[in-house]
Design a protein around this nucleic acid. Structure first.
Length: 486
RNA sequence: GGUCAGAUGGCCGAGUGGCUUAGGCACAGGUCUGCAAAACCUGAUACGGCGGUUCGAAUCCGCUUCUGACCUCCA
């Protein structure tokens, strides 16, 4: 019935058939945010993409354990031993407890993702909650000979690791190139090799976030928390490991090295990476200053924006591009998505009022097949959406009495829209109307119809134009007048 | 500089060795309508450049130009 799912694996640079290690269970780990500032729209794109993947795997009947971490410690400013914990740094500036910073941005992160209608992960573990597990991994790496101590800090020996493993498996680079092309950074005198990275960093006395360890008081390096938490909750090996494309060369490369060095096993079978959101062709990032926050997008309060766009419009906009392509943000594109999304939602809302006929001119089964085909081809949401516009066309035609559909196909059509629009794409109608509004509008529409019957078009047009200005659009049809919020 | 991606019609954005076209938005014509809107139907505009492979390439290969990402924190 359903064809098999193919997933693009960064490890092999090919689309591969998805076969879980322990079906029907699927383990998926996605690198979450470092909570030291607000999430911007580019971050959101990644989590919306994985939300689609999570939702589709669930739809297929898999029992998915979706782990997405919160990095609330250990994220270095740079990879030298003078590096400072990002959370800790921000806390000093703001004169608050580090955990206050982490809490603030964790709450903000969840709030924003909720607004985008993403499902919460199964487990959302924090780095600070897994210091012991991280220390255990460091011990293991030292015992296995892949890590060394220098004055209370522990580093990972990349060149030694590369003798037994392939450090560049994921990025496709070889060690020699990396060694030749890495820019030399300051403050690295403690490291044996220029690619070596910190696993545990000795804390200076004034450092705020620190924990005791066998090597003295310190804090964990970035990368380590993901190895510790993915291992704890998903085991030596799990199905999917995901994150933004920019994590491939450093974070995920080091994560794989840590896991291999500890357990002699590659952690994940499929590595899935989402592409960047760009603005005028450039990656949206905090350092470039071209990022903007979700609430700025909703309200339109940002110099790049002509106006605000609703959360579901933004979600729809993102799903209209494939997750592995860069997506360029622009006002024109957003306005196009806004209209397209309304078109889809309008069709969706007509669904319940459709009348079945004895015969049918619409066959829904092949349409459903094509929807599955789209998603099975590496979660191709843009193609799926194209099919859903075909479904919309059918709905509109049936509604206009231009096409007949029988009861069986009508039910299939309803199921199709529910499954793919609501459940899998996670889109919902935002035309939240209060209880009174429909009654009020209906009342006014009746008044207008009286005027129309009396051929008092001046009055009827005045009513229609007035409502239009308020944001309610009337549509006259043979069966009567309908209305939508614009 | 090194490594890796990508260049598709007015815009966004899929796809692909030939089959009938992605799709959305915008545009033009039509149906419907008191007029409009919506909806439906029809239409136009395309695959960066130069070579090569092939019966046939926008799709494969080579070169070239441009853009971006990573190599430093980044989803």
């Amino acid at each position: 019935m359903k064809q098999s799912l193919f997933v693009y694996n960064t490890l092999t640079r090919k689309k591969e058939e998805f076969t879980p290690l322990n079906a029907p269970h699927v383990g998926m780990y996605v690198c979450g945010p470092t909570v030291y500032s607000d999430v911007h729209l580019g971050n959101c794109r990644t989590y919306i993409s994985f939300d689609l993947i999570f939702r589709y795997l669930n739809h297929l009947g898999y029992k998915v354990r979706y782990v997405r971490n919160i990095t609330d410690a250990g994220h270095l400013e740079d990879d030298s031993d003078t590096g400072e914990d990002k959370i800790s740094k921000k806390a000093k500036i703001a004169k608050v407890e580090p955990m206050e910073i982490a809490q603030k941005y964790t709450v903000g992160f969840r709030e924003v993702l909720g607004i985008f209608n993403t499902l919460p992960p199964s487990i959302e573990p924090t780095a600070t909650g897994h210091i012991i597990e991280q220390i255990e991994l460091v011990k293991e790496m030292i015992a296995n000979g892949y890590a060394y101590e220098v004055d209370g800090s522990i580093y990972f020996d990349v060149e030694k690791y590369n003798k037994n493993f392939d450090y560049g498996v994921l990025s496709g680079r070889n060690l020699e190139d990396m060694l030749n092309n890495t820019r030399s950074l300051g403050g690295q005198e403690e490291k044996h090799g220029k690619l070596d990275f910190a696993l545990w960093i000795k804390a200076k006395p004034e450092h705020l976030m620190k924990w005791p360890s066998p090597w003295g008081v310190g804090f964990p390096g970035w990368h380590l928390e993901c190895s510790a938490m993915s291992h704890k909750y998903l085991g030596d090996q799990f199905d999917i490991h995901g994150g933004g494309l920019d994590l491939v060369p450093t974070h995920h490369t080091n994560e794989i090295a840590q896991n291999e060095a500890c357990f002699n096993k590659t952690p994940a079978k499929y590595w899935v990476h989402t592409n960047m959101l760009t603005v005028n062709g450039q990656k949206m990032s905090k350092s470039l200053g071209n990022s903007f926050l979700p609430h700025e997008l909703f309200t339109g309060h940002n110099a790049i924006l002509n106006k605000g766009y609703s959360p579901m419009t933004v979600r729809f906009f993102m799903l209209q591009a494939h997750y592995r392509s860069t997506l360029d943000f622009g006002n024109e594109a957003m306005e196009a998505s806004e209209k397209g999304f309304k078109r889809l939602m309008n069709a969706f809302s007509l669904l319940d009022g459709l009348k079945a006929s004895a015969t049918t001119e619409a066959e829904i089964t092949p349409l459903r097949e094509r929807c599955y085909e789209a998603l099975n081809d590496d979660f191709n949401s843009p193609v799926l959406i194209a099919e859903l516009f075909e479904a919309s066309r059918i709905i509109n035609s049936v509604h206009d009495g231009k096409m007949a559909i029988d009861a069986a196909n009508l039910q299939q059509l309803k199921d199709l829209m529910n499954d793919f629009v609501t459940e899998i794409l996670g889109l919902k109608n935002e035309q939240a109307s209060t209880d009174e509004l429909p009654k009020v509008v209906d009342f006014i529409v009746n008044l207008r119809n009286e005027a129309k019957t009396n051929r008092d078009y001046a009055t009827s047009d005045k009513i229609r134009d007035g409502l239009q200005k308020i944001g309610i659009q009337l549509k006259d049809a043979k069966e009567g007048t309908t209305w939508t919020k614009i």
